[in-house]
Amino acid sequence: MLHRYHSTKMEGSSSSILGFLYVFCSHGVLGLDHVGTNIKTRPGQIAVLPCIVTDLGSRQVLWAKTVSTERQEILSIGHFVWTTNPRLSVEHDGDTQWNLVIDDVREGDAGAYTCQVASDDATRTGVAAVQLEVSWEEDRSRVAAKAGETAVLPCTFRYLGNKQVVWQRTGTKIQILAVGVYVSTSDARIHVQHRGKQWNLVINDVTEGDDGQYECRTSENIPTIITVDLAVADRSRVAAKAGETAILPCTFRYLGNKQVVWQRTGTKIQILAVGVYVFTSDARIHVQHRGKQWNLVINDVTEGDDGQYECRTSENIPTIITVDLAVAETAAGLDE
């Protein structure tokens, strides 16, 4: 069980405590054994800075905040909170956890914190470093899927406490999709995949109508919000007669610094072009780039060109536009 220890008067002679602190502060900060993780939160939230110490023995766990390259502000020693800030406390499970808890986080709390082990001789060993970021900006991720596929929208909360996780779709109208693992929509394609700290929203058989913005948030007055943009790949069909020029359309409104990749799919994937640079020896193919358009042009098409093509962004989770090219020897063949 975790116990919280708030600011309190430290027992023992003040002179011995001050002496310990004087010796402690007069020594340089030792190197860390390992580096911890970054924690991002919004103003008004509770930030839990983790620290796990094994084989502590008679030594003390100390939390400090880096004020400058040469100075650290001591926040706690063992169970005792040394600062007068009432929002800070130490969370200890009686075993290995010595977490620093900051209630009602403010932007001024942002910075680098270190959890260290201190001995009576003022020798210190670095245990963990935690970088706390406080910002009104939302966490945001992006998921891309093709129509008919299953889209998994990620959501992870490390310290949820007794709060619920709420999934909703935003836009002109907010639609609650799930609270915890209980789905609040009649859409049978949707469910919540809960494993440990993960609360992923799963949408089976996605359609272009699922495209848009989703939010995973905690159930509190000032919630922590994780925004997920779902992009469902467009699918279009281009029909051409043998000998004609086929133009396969592709438009990206927000490309950023990513590249556009054209490839032909099937039993074997063939890269055709990256940007405007063609990667095939087929002289009939080139990319027609105008503004946000990255169309693939195939001159003098044959039935051998018939098949599926993909225009995608060069990223781990790409946005994909699928184009089916149908080539027929006669105009009647196109109508079949």
Score class of each variant (00 low, 15 high):
residue 158 R to F: 09
residue 160 L to W: 00
residue 161 G to C: 04
residue 163 K to F: 10
residue 163 K to H: 15
residue 165 V to L: 10
residue 165 V to Y: 01
residue 166 V to S: 03
residue 166 V to Q: 03
residue 168 Q to V: 04
residue 168 Q to F: 00
residue 169 R to M: 07
residue 169 R to I: 04
residue 171 G to M: 10
residue 172 T to F: 14
residue 174 I to V: 14
residue 175 Q to W: 08
residue 176 I to Y: 07
residue 177 L to Q: 01
residue 177 L to I: 12
residue 179 V to L: 03
residue 180 G to T: 11
residue 180 G to A: 09
residue 182 Y to I: 12
residue 184 S to P: 00
residue 184 S to N: 12
residue 185 T to M: 06
residue 185 T to G: 08
residue 186 S to P: 05
residue 187 D to A: 12
residue 188 A to W: 12
residue 188 A to Y: 11
residue 189 R to Q: 08
residue 189 R to C: 06
residue 191 H to E: 10
residue 192 V to C: 03
residue 192 V to G: 00
residue 193 Q to W: 08
residue 194 H to T: 09
residue 194 H to M: 11
residue 195 R to E: 15
residue 195 R to G: 13
residue 197 K to R: 15
residue 198 Q to N: 15
residue 199 W to N: 10
residue 200 N to H: 08
residue 200 N to K: 04
residue 201 L to F: 00
residue 203 I to E: 00
residue 204 N to V: 06
residue 204 N to E: 15
residue 204 N to L: 11
residue 204 N to M: 11
residue 205 D to N: 15
residue 206 V to Y: 02
residue 206 V to N: 03
residue 207 T to R: 10
residue 208 E to N: 14
residue 210 D to E: 11
residue 212 G to N: 01
residue 212 G to W: 02
residue 213 Q to E: 14
residue 215 E to W: 02
residue 215 E to L: 07
residue 216 C to L: 05
residue 217 R to P: 00
residue 217 R to N: 04
residue 218 T to E: 09
residue 219 S to Q: 14
residue 219 S to K: 13
residue 219 S to W: 04
residue 219 S to I: 08
residue 224 T to E: 13
residue 224 T to H: 12
residue 224 T to I: 13
residue 225 I to K: 04
residue 227 T to I: 08
residue 230 L to N: 04
residue 230 L to F: 09
residue 230 L to C: 09
residue 232 V to Y: 05
residue 232 V to L: 07
residue 234 D to H: 12
residue 235 R to K: 15
residue 236 S to D: 14
residue 236 S to V: 13
residue 237 R to F: 06
residue 238 V to F: 12
residue 239 A to R: 05
residue 239 A to H: 02
residue 241 K to D: 01
residue 241 K to A: 05
residue 242 A to D: 06
residue 242 A to K: 08
residue 244 E to W: 08
residue 244 E to C: 06
residue 244 E to I: 02
residue 251 T to D: 05
residue 251 T to N: 14
residue 253 R to H: 05
residue 254 Y to N: 06
residue 257 N to W: 02
residue 257 N to H: 09
residue 258 K to W: 04
residue 259 Q to S: 11
residue 259 Q to W: 01
residue 260 V to E: 00
residue 261 V to M: 11
residue 262 W to V: 04
residue 265 T to K: 10
residue 265 T to I: 13
residue 265 T to F: 03
residue 267 T to A: 13
residue 270 Q to P: 00
residue 271 I to K: 01
residue 271 I to V: 13
residue 274 V to M: 09
residue 276 V to Q: 13
residue 277 Y to L: 08
residue 279 F to P: 00
residue 284 R to N: 03
residue 284 R to H: 04
residue 286 H to P: 05
